[in-house]
Structures are given as structure tokens and as C-alpha cells.
Design a binder for these strands. Structure first.
Length: 232
DNA sequence: CGTTAGCCCTGCTGGC
DNA sequence: TGCCAGCAGGGCTAAC
């Protein structure tokens, strides 16, 4: 990270779950927060009380700083050169909120695949940016059982799923994300999407649609919540 | 190629 | 009240 000294950040963007800081040199400083990573705009020097689980400090001219904290140390920060970047981002599928992600694309991705639909939604090489929370909530919204083989979902159901993914993400973004555990934005603020979960982390509670009981299972090793009555 | 299981890591929770 | 096994999960690798 010493190579960053003296450089100007020219733009900020995002690809899937990766945050990108584009530098004047053409290099990209990339962050992935995973579950417990936190990026915070703060003052420099960083207060002693903020040193726990601190992984990286970027000090800016003018006395402010960007800190990267990560309790579970699953998050990543790394630099991509101009040469490396295109190949790196090619590994990711389209963004659900861009026009390249449409009914036709989703139908093509689902076709002939045997994996449970939930596992497919979490595959970043097919669709970028869907995590465990959003897969559960989108499948509920679309009325699709998380264990259904992807290949048997087509037509009207596939269209419903595409729409559900877009709407779930839009709403979550509008509410500032989900702060179940540690997520905070760069100003330290919590999101509020977690207060609107229909099924995720609501095992044993009533389904808001039918009043039935929300069930929890494991799909692809991930905790998965759904309503057995509403999701077929 | 498509799919699945296991690993990483640490703080919190649930059951006794 | 205290203890500790197990859970949480995104992405990578190995294996089939």
C-alpha cells in the first residue's frame, strides 16, 4: 500500500460487492468488506479507541483519513494494475440493476442448470452482487422455493424472479443496506433494510403474506429462510 | 464444464 | 451464572 503515497483518488465506483477507488496512476484500490468489513471516513490521526480490528489507514492531505476495520478478517483490500483490472472484472456476471441483466439473460442462465436456484443466485460469475440476505428476500418476493432446480424455472416465474431481484436491491439501497451485525456506511450510520425482512432471519415467525411459519434450512451451506406455503 | 464440500476467521448465541 | 460448541457467510480451491 506504500505505492499509494502521493496519489490522487480520481473516482469511486462499485462492481458487484467490490468497492473501487480509481487512482490517477490507472491503478485501482479495491475493497471487499465481506461480512464484517467497515470503511469509515474519519480524522487523522485515528483515535486510539478506533484501533481494535483496524486493518488499514489511508491518510489524506488535509487531515482526514479512511480506515478499514474488519473483526473477522474475511475482508480484502488490494491493488489492481491497469493490466490486471479487465481480466479481474470479467469474472463477474452482470449487475442486476443494469440493462444487460434482463429477462432473456436470466432465462439463459437458468436453462439446463441443476443447482438449487438459491445457490445460482449467489454465484457472482453469473449475477454480481446478490448476497445471502437478498437471495432469500428476492425468492420470497418471487414466490419460488430456494431448493428448486434452476433449470425448471422459466417463463413467467423467471420474469418474476428478475423483477424481484431488481426490486429487492433497489429497496435495500434506498434503506441504506442491512445492519444485522456490523455493517455501517462511511459516516458510521446503520442501514434499515433489516427491519423490512420478510423471511430472512425470521425462523419460526409468521410469514407476512399467509401467516404460516417461516422455515430455516441449509442450501449450499448457507442459512436459508423461506415460507413453505408461499414459495413453491 | 457444472457442481459441491470444505476452509478461512472471530465474536456472539444458545443450550446445559 | 458460567462455559463452550456451533453458527454466521463470500469467495476460493480441490475434488468428482
Amino acid at each position: 500500500m506504500r505505492r499509494l503515497k502521493g496519489q490522487t483518488i480520481e473516482s469511486l465506483c462499485r462492481r458487484g460487492k467490490y468497492l473501487l477507488l480509481e487512482l490517477e496512476s490507472g491503478q485501482t484500490l479495491v475493497f471487499h468488506l465481506r461480512m464484517t468489513g467497515r470503511l469509515t471516513r474519519t480524522e487523522s490521526p485515528v483515535p486510539k479507541s478506533d484501533k481494535r480490528h483496524l486493518r488499514l489507514i489511508l491518510e489524506f492531505a488535509g487531515g482526514s483519513a479512511l480506515t478499514f476495520h474488519d473483526t473477522r478478517r474475511f475482508g480484502k483490500a488490494f491493488i489492481l494494475s491497469t493490466d490486471e483490472a479487465p481480466a479481474y472484472w470479467k469474472k463477474l456476471g452482470p449487475e442486476p440493476l443494469e440493462s444487460s441483466f434482463n429477462n432473456k439473460y436470466l432465462a439463459g442462465v437458468l436453462d439446463k442448470r441443476t443447482r438449487p436456484i438459491k445457490s445460482l443466485l449467489l454465484d457472482q460469475s453469473l449475477i454480481a452482487g446478490i448476497g445471502n440476505i437478498y437471495a432469500d428476500e428476492a425468492l420470497y418476493r418471487a414466490g419460488i422455493h430456494p431448493e428448486r432446480p434452476a433449470g425448471e424455472i422459466g417463463g413467467e416465474e423467471a420474469r418474476r424472479l428478475a423483477k424481484a431481484l431488481k426490486e429487492t436491491l433497489k429497496k435495500a439501497i434506498k434503506l441504506g443496506g442491512s445492519s444485522i451485525d456490523s455493517y455501517r456506511d462511511a459516516r458510521g450510520r446503520s442501514g434499515s433494510f433489516q427491519h423490512t425482512f420478510r423471511v430472512h432471519r425470521r425462523e419460526g415467525e409468521p410469514c407476512p403474506g399467509c401467516g404460516g411459519i417461516v422455515k430455516k434450512i441449509k442450501v449450499g451451506g448457507r442459512g436459508t429462510y423461506f415460507c413453505p406455503a408461499c414459495q413453491r
